[in-house]
Write a protein that binds this DNA or RNA. Structure first.
Lengths: 126, 126
DNA sequence: CAGTATCCGAAAGGATACTG
DNA sequence: CAGTATCCTTTCGGATACTG
């Protein structure tokens, strides 16, 4: 280690928080956190809210987020079963920071689009 | 559209800012933005800083970020060639918000780890 | 309703060799 | 040095069928 090393361990190959971050920022993770930031939902409610997710991926995503302590799963032992998902306090804090990033990227999407056009114009005609 | 729709267009399937967000939060995108947040670097300097990245992935990542207007590429027509990469003002603003999220996740990694252990304990012994 | 299990095609990503 | 091109393995993720 010397002074040129990055200050963030998350940039190391096998960092555990790298895995958590991937759960949070991944396609379905971000979508699910965003949905749950709006309230508490049942499995199939979430499926309808999270546009395009399959049962398999939603299940997988919820398990990962629950295991990380970001989502709480509440199963009533009724028949038919009823399971509610909601953010934990930690999950809410993380979702807020994620949404800050998402909001910002979205608010600057015009600039991004312009940059893409001038980039493509400069090299598209190669 | 009704009131149950998500407030964030980024959650729609084919949203353009979803693509930008993936460039930013993806494994190599986040690493590269984090590295460039520390300064200006040449291609092989970045390769050494971004732990584990291949030439192919670094090249691909830099192209995507440059096209989105987050990274500026400066090539001197010398021999041997010298190319410097740095964040644009927009890239810097995005990197800051990304690092806020990363820092927070990292600072709570202990909580995450504990949650994982109790989760595994509850189901690991099934 | 709330999932799990399996199969399979698509896409990401690494190693290596090569170019200007 | 700064990449590109190719090959090949691994992972992601959708469709479908099935279970408690």
């Amino acid at each position: 280690m010397d002074s040129t090393d990055l200050a963030y361990d998350v940039f190391a190959k096998q960092c555990p928080s790298r895995t958590t971050l991937e759960h949070v920022t991944g396609r379905w993770g971000a979508l699910t956190l965003g949905a749950l930031h709006e309230g508490t939902f049942r499995f199939n409610e979430l499926r309808r809210r999270v546009d395009g997710v399959s049962e398999k991926m939603l299940s997988q995503t919820l398990h990962a987020l629950e295991r990380d302590g970001l989502v709480r799963r509440d199963a009533q032992p009724t028949n038919p079963p009823r399971v509610d998902y909601q953010l934990t306090p930690l999950g809410r804090e993380i979702a807020e920071r994620l949404l800050t990033l998402i909001d910002f990227v979205q608010s600057r999407q015009d600039d991004v689009h312009k940059a893409q056009e001038s980039y493509d114009e400069a090299r598209g005609g190669r």
